[in-house]
Design a protein around this nucleic acid. Structure first.
Lengths: 192, 192, 192, 192
DNA sequence: AATGAATGAGGCTTCATTCAT
DNA sequence: AATGAATGAAGCCTCATTCAT
């Protein structure tokens, strides 16, 4: 019907769109096909299975996130500035790409089975960006583990995104205030 | 076959167990019935629907968590001690009752539909325990919002549990170190 | 719970009520029990099966209809007056007791299985009331069969009720006009 | 397995056949599939739902009936002859296509839900055929309403078919005599 | 006189997937 | 490059009914 890979692109796009609109449990091959305007069968020309399709989305999301974070690190010299912006950028990614964030970090491993473990290693590169700055700033402290510190910060950011996406943050709190406060608290990891 | 409510108890138990093993999407009435050793029909003697069954689990979990946290607050006088123990207790609950934690906080509201909104208000009581201590310690600061601070701490704790349950924390980090570090970082919320 | 037969009476009453409100297909033993305020099991104390319950209703309806029609015949002397009133009374019964009429005459025999055939003979007594008058008026005509004539009249009345109950009569027609016209046409059977 | 639309045709056919044998309430997707020799799933390739399937039958029946009646009107010039044949043709359709007649006119609207209202308008075209002749013959009478008269005739024909299909007509009456008598009585509507 | 507990059968429908074309 | 036809498994849920108490 279209140029090489055009349909593949559309499938991924509609899958993401459905994911955003209806949640993972409601996304089926049929619905994706209907949204794209092709047959369910056609999807199997480009993806081995439903899992494989979603793995592609995970991979794409991982790439986008890393790219977005890497740019931040490049653009700023001051470690604290870098760290602060890294946090904001991560939060921003999660809140503005809920469908990516959901399949990347919120879906149970059991739901998204058979995901090649090595692809999750890409996720670690992102964590390393945080750890690197922590090493730079607090690396000399004998009892400080940068990887551990980065994981704690990640927990905070991830928790904030999760609660926000699940709409469990009290409606009286302004989102921007919440984000500011999260970032402010995350940055404290740079302090002794 | 069973004494009063015995089957009901077994259903809840197996539902929780399946939830833990396979994730919400994989839990079906049929599987629960098979695990319990009864007919799917029998489940409907005790629960109006699948949703109702899971709502019962949510409610039970909410009750357990609140009880566990309330005890902590009663037993300790020093605010910082209270706060620290609250954090530990919350983490402990999440990590030791993953199936409860999942349905309570990880499931999307859309997946668990029609949940009586007022039952979620119970969840807020837990958040209030954190907020109360923050008010006690930092209430005089003009620009400090205890509810906001408590939500940030909650994000950290929730994120830590989520990542741990999803097995996304680097295996090289000892869980006890991770928890210590999370609590230590959370407690910083008490400082100016 | 109550005096002898009291519950039995309530069951029949609620069954009829449900029949009227929701139609035969929607009436279940459970719903009847819920409406009465007893257990589904209790219904089986008074009726052998769902069929038996409905057969009782059919029987009751047959009795009521016959009583209503018999009164008409007794009260009037003039054959034409009798016939006219019989028709009106039959139409009235059908339109004012739709739940009885439905189980008595509209339900498929397959749906209401195992109905003792002899009970349907009661229905013939009603037809005979019409036939008797026809015999009285036109009995001398050589080619006139009163039973046949009565059945034709019955068809008209039954059809009118059926279409009305199924809401298939054009809404622009006033019900009273429709009934008048049906009776007027039925009465023509008395004429040569 | 089957040629284009072949399975669809078989599904409709078996659905009709089951309808005839067991009545609407007893017809299930599973039974239809079993009768056809395919999977219940396959039915959903051709019909969106059980309702949709039966709506197709209704529509087909409406078309057939109208076609059959329209031919009668075209073929005869004399109004009385037309009317007489219309009645016979309607009766014939009902008695020879009981399964069509049942879903078209005997099923309660509640049982066959969500039927596009405009399709019932087709049914009115049939009624209009009767009304047109009545207008032609008795249109000048001031107190005669052709639509009302047609509805009365329809009641008679419909009632006759209903009783016959439900096997409630006395077995001693020959069907052909019954039909003759019904038609004869219907035709009286043409007289003053 | 009534119930609580339980069930086997079956209701409609959707799913991911395959295979021949 | 794409599809039309088909399926087996499974989803939630309701049914009439039985049996021990």
């Amino acid at each position: 019907m279209a140029r090489n890979g055009e349909l593949r692109r559309q499938i991924l796009e509609q899958a993401r769109s459905l994911l955003l609109d209806e949640g993972y449990a409601q996304v089926s091959m049929r619905k994706i096909a209907a949204a794209v305007g092709c047959t369910p069968t056609s999807i199997y020309l480009y993806f081995d299975s439903k899992d494989a399709l979603f793995h592609s989305l995970v991979e794409e999301g991982m790439g986008r996130l890393h790219e977005q974070l890497a740019v931040v690190v490049e653009r700023h010299a001051d470690p604290e500035e870098q760290f602060c912006r890294l946090c904001r950028s991560y939060l921003e990614f999660g809140l503005e790409n809920p469908e990516f964030y959901e399949i990347m970090f919120l879906l149970h491993p059991e739901q998204l089975q058979r995901f090649p473990t090595d692809k999750y290693r890409k996720a670690r590169r992102n964590l390393q960006l945080f750890a690197d700055i922590l090493t730079e700033v607090r690396g000399t402290e004998p009892d400080f583990d940068p990887l551990l510190g980065a994981t704690v910060v990640w927990s905070l950011l991830h928790g904030a995104i999760s609660l926000q996406l699940a709409k469990r943050v009290d409606a009286r709190l302004a989102t921007s205030d919440f984000i500011d406060q999260v970032v402010e608290h995350a940055v404290r990891m740079l302090q002794l």
